[in-house]
């Protein structure tokens, strides 16, 4: 079907915490070509300060109801405007964009690692794995207990472990210090979160020769490979994180 631009209707704007919210959208056409790790470009109307679209990961897709969800963190003017939208409002999107995670096979031991808003693309990945009969371990890192959201949704897709930086819930410290990584030998690790977190996961995977894919969150203008702004420094030169990513195999990155 290819990339397309659509005005979609918001079914629900669910505020999870002061900083996180989820927009559920009604798909106009068939969403069968959506893949985990892909993103949409969201138009933000109404302010000269929000000139460009906002790239947002696809959080969850309901192929039966033909709806999908986007998971947001209020990070600036654009996401702040979006956080105030209501059910029935229209949102202009370009989708589906970017590369996707390589969905593991049934017998592979897999860990999904997410931090903060970076948990977004991992739920859809987990659900796609479930369809292949694979139940992943899912390690989610948050700053503190007040920032923990959507854990129940992730529990439906896998076995969830938590860390918080202050130790208020789960193990204390960063995800790479979690005891899980000492106890279990994984075949594959998929990661999305702050760059410092992804780099430490990457370093763990390199050291232990574990297959690893990460999802980058580079600044971008277009989202479909023409502005060349969102480049990642890779072994194949500068590649656009919108069409050659956002999901990259660790072997491609110079981390």
């Amino acid at each position: 079907m290819g990339k397309r631009t659509e005005d979609l209707i918001i079914i629900e704007n669910k505020h999870l915490s002061p900083e996180f919210f989820i927009l559920e959208l009604s798909g106009k056409d068939n969403l069968a070509d959506f893949r985990p790790g892909q993103f949409v470009q969201v138009r933000v109307e109404g302010s000269p300060e929000t000139f460009l679209r906002r790239p947002i990961s696809i959080y969850d897709v309901d192929f039966v109801k033909n709806t999908f969800k986007l998971f947001f963190q209020i990070a600036g003017k654009g996401t702040s405007v979006l956080s105030k939208l209501k059910a029935g409002d229209s949102l202009n999107l370009i989708y589906p964009l970017g590369t996707s995670f390589t969905v593991p096979e049934k017998n592979e031991k897999v860990l999904l690692v997410g931090g903060g808003v970076g948990i977004a693309p991992l739920l859809f990945l987990g659900k796609c794995m479930n369809e292949k009969g694979n139940i992943p371990d899912i390690l989610l890192g948050f700053r503190n207990s007040e920032r923990i959201v959507e854990v129940d949704q992730f529990r439906e897709a896998g076995k969830v472990f938590l860390t918080t930086e202050d130790g208020s819930v789960g193990e204390k410290g960063f995800v790479t210090n979690h005891s899980l990584l000492l106890q279990t030998k994984y075949d594959k690790i998929f990661c999305c979160g702050p760059e410092s977190m992804m780099k430490s996961v990457a370093s763990y995977c390199r050291k232990n020769s574990i297959f690893c894919e990460v999802s980058l969150e580079n600044l971008m203008a277009c989202g479909f490979g023409v502005c060349l702004c969102c480049v990642a420094d890779t072994v194949r030169g500068n590649l656009c994180s919108c069409i050659d990513g956002p999901v990259f195999n660790l072997n491609d990155l110079k981390w």
Partner: peptide, 8 residues
């Protein structure tokens, strides 16, 4: 990178 900045 970074090679882009949004401005008003």
């Amino acid at each position: 990178y970074p090679r882009m900045a949004e401005t008003p």
